[in-house]
Simulated assay, not measured.
Amino acid sequence: MRRWWKRLFYAGGISLFIGSASLTTYCAWNVYMYSGVGEEKTLAKAKDTYHFVLVPEELDNDYWRLVEKGAKAAARELDVDLEYIGPRQANIDEHLRILKKAAAAKVDGIITQGLTEVEFVPVINEIVDKNIPVLTIDTDAPTSRRVGYIGTDNYYAGFIAGRALVEDTQGMVNVAIITGSLTAVHQQQRVRGFRDAVKNEKRIRIVAVEESHITRVQAAEKTYTILKKHPEVNAFYGTSALDAIGIARVVEQFHREQETYIIGFDTLPETIEYLQKGTIEATVVQEPYEMGYRAVKMMADIVAGHDVPAITNTETKVIRKEDLPLRPARNYEVKTP
Rank of each mutant, 00 (worst) to 15 (best):
Val166Ile: 15
Ile137Lys: 04
Thr152Ala: 14
Gly162Gln: 10
Tyr149Ala: 07
Ala161Thr: 05
Val166Gln: 08
Gly151Glu: 03
Val134Trp: 04
Ser144Asp: 11
Tyr149His: 14
Arg163Ile: 02
Ala164Trp: 02
Gly151Met: 03
Thr139Asp: 13
Phe159His: 14
Arg146His: 08
Ala164Met: 05
Gly151Thr: 09
Arg146Met: 07
Asp140Arg: 11
Asp140Asn: 15
Val147Phe: 05
Tyr149Ile: 07
Asp138Glu: 13
Tyr155His: 11
Ala157Ile: 06
Gly151Tyr: 07
Asp138Gln: 08
Asn154Glu: 11
Asp153Asn: 15
Ile137Val: 15
Asp138Tyr: 04
Arg146Ile: 09
Thr139Val: 15
Asn154Tyr: 12
Asp153Gly: 06
Val147Ser: 12
Leu165Gly: 04
Ile150Gln: 05
Tyr156Asn: 11
Pro142Thr: 05
Thr143Gln: 15
Arg146Trp: 06
Phe159Asn: 13
Thr139Gln: 12
Ile160Phe: 04
Ala161Pro: 10
Asp140Pro: 04
Val166Met: 07
Pro142Tyr: 06
Gly151Cys: 03
Val166Cys: 02
Arg145Asp: 14
Asn154Trp: 10
Gly158Trp: 02
Ile160Val: 14
Thr139Gly: 12
Asn154Ile: 09
Arg146Phe: 08
Gly158Val: 04
Thr152Leu: 07
Ala161Leu: 06
Asp140His: 03
Ala141Ser: 15
Arg146Lys: 14
Thr152Tyr: 03
Gly162Ala: 13
Thr136Leu: 10
Thr143Arg: 15
Leu165Phe: 03
Arg146Cys: 09
Ala164Tyr: 01
Pro142Arg: 10
Leu135Gly: 05
Ile137Phe: 05
Thr136Val: 13
Gly148Leu: 01
Asn154Lys: 11
Tyr155Val: 03
Tyr155Cys: 02
Ile137Arg: 06
Arg145Ile: 00
Gln170Val: 10
Gln170Leu: 07
Thr136Trp: 11
Gly151Lys: 11
Val134Lys: 02
Glu167Trp: 00
Gly162Glu: 12
Thr136Ser: 12
Thr152Phe: 01
Ala141Gly: 13
Ala141Met: 13
Glu167Cys: 00
Tyr156Met: 12
Arg146Leu: 08
Arg163Asn: 03
Ala141Glu: 12
Gly148Ile: 02
Asp153Leu: 05
Arg145Cys: 01
Arg145Phe: 02
Val134His: 04
Asp140Cys: 04
Pro142Leu: 07
Thr139Tyr: 01
Arg163Cys: 00
Val147Trp: 00
Tyr155Gln: 03
Ala157Asp: 08
Asn154Cys: 09
Arg145His: 14
Tyr155Thr: 03
Leu165Glu: 05
Leu165Cys: 06
Leu165Arg: 04
Ala141Trp: 09
Ile150Gly: 11
Ile150Asp: 04
Thr143Ser: 15
Tyr149Trp: 06
Glu167Pro: 00
Gly162Met: 12
Thr136Lys: 11
Arg163Gly: 00
Thr139Pro: 03
Ser144Asn: 10
Ala141Ile: 10
Asp168Trp: 01
Ala164His: 03
Tyr149Cys: 05
Leu135His: 06
Asp168Pro: 01
Thr136Tyr: 10
Thr143Ile: 13
Glu167Phe: 00
Asp168Lys: 14
Gly158Gln: 05
Gln170Ala: 13
Ala161Val: 06
Thr136Glu: 09
Ala157Val: 08
Asp153Arg: 11
Thr169Lys: 08
Tyr155Gly: 02
Gly158Pro: 05
Pro142Gln: 06
Tyr149Asp: 08
Gln170Pro: 00
Ile160Leu: 12
Thr169Gln: 08
Gly148Asn: 09
